[in-house]
């Protein structure tokens, strides 16, 4: 462990931690609103540690969606991490197996982005730096989840204080974050139409899988453009 590099990581992760804090609290409050206890909410933040997919998870859980579909949706929302871990492989090859385990567990969007940036500038992506950066975001994420969950329990009717619009708007923000991707508009249009139709004709929760499948199939069937960039773009989760 190199203390200076650890500290450098902590300093680098600090602003990310501050920016993510409201989302941790929001997750805690909405999780409680969707039937989680405070401990459940904190446990999910600790075990999954991926804000957007946690929001998706509680939303589907609150709507009594079948468990396998909840897990599949979490997997789908987190799928971008496959690209990150593929792309980061060359920078962390020198980590030990245990270090790699922790590195992958902490691999959130900003962690990936900063690791790439650091390597790009010729600085070493050491485990000390990586851990410092990751932990200064990880632990406050748990604390903020707990704080949000405590406040969430005090709230009687979520509609009266406007909590119910926050998740759809949050997801809308995430969708907008993907708008630079290829085929964004056709995929979103088809998924939107299919999910609304599925909600009407089949009912919840099938609108999620039917709508998503329609968009994904369309993306596979559209003509492919050659020459895509090698490095995956980082979408901002929040």
């Amino acid at each position: 462990m190199n203390r200076d590099e650890f500290r450098e990581g902590v300093r680098g992760g600090f602003p990310i931690m501050v920016a993510a804090s409201p989302f941790g609290a929001l997750f805690g409050a909405l999780a409680v609103d969707n039937g989680f206890s405070i401990a459940d909410a904190v446990f999910m933040s600790a075990a999954v540690y991926a804000g957007a997919s946690q929001m998706v998870g509680i939303e589907l859980f609150g709507n009594n969606v079948q468990p396998w579909l909840v897990v599949l949706s979490v997997f789908a929302v987190n799928f971008r991490h496959v690209l990150y871990s593929a792309s980061i492989a060359k920078h962390i090859r020198h980590f030990t197996l245990v270090q790699k385990f922790f590195a992958f567990f902490l691999l959130i969007d900003p962690q990936y982005a900063e690791s790439e940036r650091r390597a790009e500038r010729g600085l070493p992506v050491s485990f000390s730096w990586y851990l410092g950066f990751g932990l200064i975001i990880y632990f406050p994420w748990l604390v903020n989840t707990a704080i949000g969950a405590v406040f969430g329990q005090l709230i009687g009717d979520p509609k009266a204080i406007g909590l119910d619009v926050l998740l759809p708007i949050y997801f809308l923000g995430l969708v907008l974050g993907f708008r630079k991707r290829d085929r964004f508009l056709p995929v979103v249009a088809v998924s939107a139409f299919a999910s609304v139709a599925a909600m009407h004709f089949v009912g919840s929760p099938w609108h999620v899988s039917i709508g998503a499948l329609a968009g994904v199939l369309l993306a596979a069937c559209l003509p492919q453009e050659p020459g895509r960039s090698e490095m995956p773009a980082v979408e901002k989760e929040a």
Binding site: A52, V56, E59, S73, A76, V77, F79, R80, V82, V165, L167, P168, F171, L172, L174, V175, F178, R181, D182, R183, F184, V187, V188, S191, A192, F193, A194, S195, V196, M199, S204, H207, V208, I210, G211, A212, L213, A214, G215, V216, L217, L218, A219, A220, L222, Q224, P226, R228, E235
Partner: peptide, 27 residues
């Protein structure tokens, strides 16, 4: 394979859209 990559690439936006559009229409 490029089609697989294109399909995978579309997954997040497709999934998230299904959580937005029905809320907008039926909310």
């Amino acid at each position: 394979p490029p089609r697989v990559e294109a399909a995978l690439n579309a997954v997040p936006a497709a999934v998230l859209t299904t959580l937005v559009a029905p809320a907008f229409v039926y909310g």
